[in-house]
């Protein structure tokens, strides 16, 4: 990359980061008004039937809910600039503290699943393309479509039924066994992996099928390009052509989809979390919405928005790493 191109690249990335922050800010602002204008009152659970209206007002005052919405918004904006998303009404802890507790699990869980989705789909696609067997290709394409269309709750419950109830091999739910804390280091790691097998399969299967289809189609298309025929004519090994030339070109469309997928799963994987009782962002977000814990709802959306922007940004960087010609595309 020459110096001019590099400085333009840095400038564009900077502008892009700024626009991402603005998007995020607009998103949480919009959400702020929507949830405050929606019916329902977060103080409901604190208000007993025997409580007089004066006491109810004092509770609302404690949550700053008796101020005009505009005043609440300005306080909210100034707090955001100070890096403070407020205190959760339910947890009575800072929103960042609550979110970190749940996000740390989601980050690990979603990352492992994402790695499984990408690596397994690429491996499968390479295998199938290498075989060059029409029948296998057709079966694998149909199978990927079928697997992709299975809802997560059906897959999760089916897996539990087979592996936990009938075969009694894997745990039904939870992140660790009840004796986890009494285990030494390595058994602890294994214990958590053992608990994560079914959730990871449930979360990853759809992604594997989706990515597989993308890569497979893209590889089929690139396989027929003239530059591949030229490479073959030079006598290059077929495996080498596949790994060094077809795959890098075929992976480009996958990266954009993968960026979006990574953002989604980092934002929370509600169904998998509920079925397997996992402490992730999806459950936290839904619980906070249902209990009208406004600061926490905004915190969850803020986190989901940030990871979505970050994941897409990462996807762009990955595309760049694979194909330098794309710098122009990104700059545009």
């Amino acid at each position: 990359m020459n110096r001019v191109l590099r400085s333009q690249f840095v400038k564009t990335i900077f502008i892009r980061l700024l626009s991402s922050l603005l998007t995020l800010f607009l998103l949480v602002s919009f959400l702020f008004f929507i949830i405050r204008l929606s019916p329902g009152d977060p103080t409901d659970k604190y208000v007993s039937a025997k409580l007089g209206s004066e006491l109810s007002e004092r509770i609302a005052e404690k949550f700053s809910l008796n101020q005009p919405v505009a005043d609440q918004y300005f306080a909210f904006v100034s707090n955001i600039f100070k890096g403070d998303l407020g205190v959760s009404y339910n947890y009575r802890l800072s929103v960042f503290e609550v979110i970190w507790e749940y996000f740390s699990f989601t980050l690990i869980f979603a990352s492992i699943s994402f790695i499984i989705q990408i690596s397994l789909s690429i491996l499968l696609a390479i295998r199938v393309v290498r075989k060059q067997n029409k029948r296998i290709e057709q079966i694998s394409t149909n199978l990927s479509l079928f697997v992709y269309s299975i809802p997560a709750f059906v897959l999760g419950v089916t897996l539990i039924y087979i592996f936990s109830v009938h075969l009694n091999l894997l745990p039904i739910s939870g992140l660790k066994s009840l004796d986890h804390d009494e285990l030494s280091f390595f058994p602890r790691i294994f214990d958590q992996l053992y608990h994560l097998i079914l959730p990871l399969i449930t979360l990853s299967v759809g992604g594997v099928a989706l990515f597989y289809k993308y890569i497979k189609e893209s590889m089929d298309e690139i396989k027929n390009h003239t530059f591949v025929a030229n490479l073959r004519a030079t006598g290059l090994d077929e495996n080498l052509i596949l790994r060094k030339h077809i795959l890098p070109n075929a992976i480009r469309p996958l990266i954009s989809v993968a960026g979006v997928e990574l953002g989604i799963i980092l934002g929370g994987t509600l169904i998998t979390e509920v079925i397997f009782s996992l402490p992730g962002m999806g459950r936290l977000a839904i619980d906070s919405i249902l209990s009208r814990d406004y600061p926490l709802v905004i915190g969850c959306v803020f986190t989901a928005g940030t990871v979505m922007i970050f994941a897409n940004f990462l996807a762009d960087l990955a595309k760049l790493k694979i194909d330098k010609r794309m710098i122009k595309g990104i700059l545009n």
Partner: peptide
Amino acid sequence: VPDYTSRILQLRK
């Protein structure tokens, strides 16, 4: 265990 079905399965197991 937020999921009812899962609670019942664990009770049976």
